[in-house]
Design a protein around this nucleic acid. Sequence first.
DNA 1: GGGGAGAGATGCCGC
DNA 2: GCGGCATTTCTCCCC
Lengths: 238, 238
Amino acid sequence: MDATELMEALDSNKTIIISANCNIAYSGRAESFLADGDRIIIIKSDKTLLVHQPTGSIPINYMKEGSSFRVSSDGERVELHCTNSREFLTVRMHRVYSHDFLELSDGQKLQITGSEKDMSQMIYNHPELIEKGFRPLSMEEHTKFGFIDVFGFDVSNTLVVVECKRYSADHKAVEQLNRYVKKIKQAKGLKTVRGIIAAPRITAAAEMHIREFGFEFRRINPPKYMERFDSSQRRLEF
Amino acid sequence: MDATELMEALDSNKTIIISANCNIAYSGRAESFLADGDRIIIIKSDKTLLVHQPTGSIPINYMKEGSSFRVSSDGERVELHCTNSREFLTVRMHRVYSHDFLELSDGQKLQITGSEKDMSQMIYNHPELIEKGFRPLSMEEHTKFGFIDVFGFDVSNTLVVVECKRYSADHKAVEQLNRYVKKIKQAKGLKTVRGIIAAPRITAAAEMHIREFGFEFRRINPPKYMERFDSSQRRLEF
DNA sequence: GGGGAGAGATGCCGC
DNA sequence: GCGGCATTTCTCCCC
């Protein structure tokens, strides 16, 4: 791979995949250097840069969408310079093992369920999961008190704020709930507003924290509407 | 690319890069489906799976290190089944544009500076950044009160807890600091422990929050020791 | 393995 | 742009 063909691929917004021995310098939100090693370098059609090591799931270096690229060469090595408004990165390639310039097309978005939002929706549609007589007023609402998952009245018309967590609820979830409850009490001049954490489980520290504030915990699992997994086959059946 | 050579590449722990039109089903921590489109599929030597769309910096689907793979084929299409202890993913490839099986080697780690830890160290070494007479006792210490960035005494021997943030300090940082201060007061039976947030800036909400607790804010920028950026050249000079 | 916290976190939405 | 918050967050470190 020479500098010219890489420049052409960049100019024509191809998706570029290079495997090479290289080192990488980064300056921007932090400063970093990565000594010589084999990596996979990807430049996407939207000018996102990703550098992956042969192990691990996280890119070791990266630049955001819309970065600018420049290629230079001293004959032997090809250097890739990447920059955006406040960051700079240089890949110095010593040896290129393989390269691929592609024209890829994909307009699809991920359809996903089982998020915290789906949990809120489930509770909104099945308020008895919280308790008998719970009447939700809203869900997933950006209120001036914060972003409240589910908001409603209990059987005795006391305001209830529900904070959902997909996994174990921790002390941060309790503090988040406390912020909302405090703000609502203050804004509406109410003496009692109930706070409920809905999650599949809760940490010991958070459970103590909950008692301190007089909040409650409901053990609720996030929904997985798309679940079509055949457990006997251990295969996805779509 | 046929199923057999893909299986062989997987068995020999090669790093595999495939570009293909495919759809993807995932079941595990959530449920997702991604309809047909062009993607880059990477399987690393440690059996990490990454699927990237032609735009964006985040993988659209992925499986963690140490996953198991199975390949099947109905003659036309190649299917890649990936599973680990609690997740399942299937890539159904309709057309393979390119593929590459590599043997990559990289033992290097990223050398990075400018993190919150470096900020703590800077304050520890230059306590006057907090105030005249501040005497740090420890930094980055896992105490039974939590993980405290910098811990010390002020000029009048009052305990001081410093919480560092690389960017804007928000209400979560204030609550974090409050947790530490509360725990220390309780554990040591002290009436006053000072809390200080060190960050380049602070959100308006956090500033009000700080006053509420009687904490203080110090405007401090995180260090960048490795900075070798020639601003006139807009280039990294290593 | 759980818990707590940072990350060059990223991405989304609302103001 | 900032702010607040979820994420199949991921990663590290300590208990």
